[in-house]
């Protein structure tokens, strides 16, 4: 490993698939979700900036970041919140490097665990700390709700990635074992084998529900009391800090969808040999996943917290466990 490689990795972290790309994808995902939700609810959604309002999230982001001023309340610790926002963004960028979509992607054995820790734990910790560093009854409720959901959906997320990884290692004898890269290359074969189809299906259901809850999208963004502001953890955030928080959340959405696209839908499959067609296929599948998430989001009401938690257990952990049991047996 030489210095050029390290420099390449750092450059890739800033451009593709790192910060810049992540920004564009996440803003676009936000637009897609907003537009679809609006249409499902017979509204127009964003229209002003760009064709069909596609640049609206970019404009919102820049406006919040550049024009609005930072404001802090008496009890707030805004610099700590910002520090953790940057750490969260860093963790998201680091987790994009684990996905096999660039020449500088990093893969190793067990990188599934690295993905969980960078993408799950670091981001969750950052979001919680951002919320509680500016205390307010609502942000506290939001943060504690988020932490409670994370405590269940993190294992569910891990579980649903574990199943394809186990199957690729055991059934297909793929190398490197327990790696997201191997999963991506071999996922389509798992769908074609009737034996592995059932656990794959179960883990797909599991990861969809887990993603929904991890991102606190409806039906999991639960109001505790009547007068609670829906914003939850973001109640006290304003201006640039809100922009950063929204960016983290959108990037979280984008990367989750990307993981589902790659690990479950096979990414560029069946056009791996043709880069252009493969990229196009990946994009189409990515939009499909986003659409599914949006549809789930739009078609449910909100749960109370305990209902949400029970839903995670029932529809994410249980199918995941059944899938794992089947995967262990076959």
């Amino acid at each position: 490993m030489d210095i050029m490689y390290i420099l390449g990795v750092l450059a890739s972290a800033l451009t593709y698939p790192g910060l810049a790309t992540l920004w564009i994808i996440s803003m676009f995902s936000e637009w897609w979700v907003r537009k679809l939700t609006a249409r499902a609810q017979r509204r127009m959604g964003p229209t002003y900036v760009g064709p069909l309002g596609v640049l609206q999230p970019f404009a919102d982001f820049i406006k919040l970041l550049v024009v609005k001023s930072e404001s802090s309340q008496r009890y707030g610790n805004i610099s700590l919140a910002k520090a953790f926002a940057f750490v969260g963004i860093g963790a998201l960028v680091a987790s994009t490097l684990l996905l096999p979509i660039s020449p500088y992607s990093i893969y190793s054995r067990y990188d599934l665990i690295l993905l969980i820790y960078f993408f799950g734990v670091w981001v969750a910790v950052s979001e919680v700390v951002i919320a509680i560093s500016i205390p307010n009854p609502f942000t506290l409720k939001g943060a504690s709700r988020y932490a409670s959901v994370i405590a269940l959906c993190e294992p569910a997320f891990f579980l649903s990635l574990l199943i394809p990884a186990y199957l690729t290692a055991k059934v297909l004898k793929a190398e490197p074992t327990w790696s997201i890269t191997a999963v991506v290359s071999y996922a389509p074969q798992l769908w074609l084998n009737p034996l592995t189809l059932i656990p794959m299906l179960l883990s797909l259901i599991s990861i969809l529900v887990a993603t929904q809850s991890k991102l606190m999208l409806p039906p999991f963004n639960i109001p505790e009391a009547e007068q609670e502001v829906i914003a939850g953890p973001t109640t006290e955030l304003s201006g640039p800090l809100l922009a950063l928080f929204n960016f983290i959340h959108d990037a979280d959405l984008a990367i989750s969808s990307l993981i589902i696209t790659l690990a479950f839908l096979g990414g560029p499959y069946p056009f791996e040999s043709n880069p252009a067609l493969g990229a196009l296929t990946t994009i189409v599948k990515f939009l499909l996943v986003l659409t599914v998430i949006t549809v789930i989001r739009a078609s449910f009401g909100r749960f109370r917290l305990e209902q949400g938690l029970k839903t995670i257990v029932k529809y994410s952990i249980t199918p995941g466990l059944i899938g794992l049991a089947i995967a262990l047996i076959i």
Binding site: L14, L19, F86, G90, A94
Partner: peptide, 17 residues
């Protein structure tokens, strides 16, 4: 190897932050 990968990714985290 996973240890080096983690260290590099942590470096990326700090750098990007």
């Amino acid at each position: 190897d996973p240890l080096t990968a983690t260290l590099i990714l942590s470096g990326v985290l700090a750098f990007t932050a």
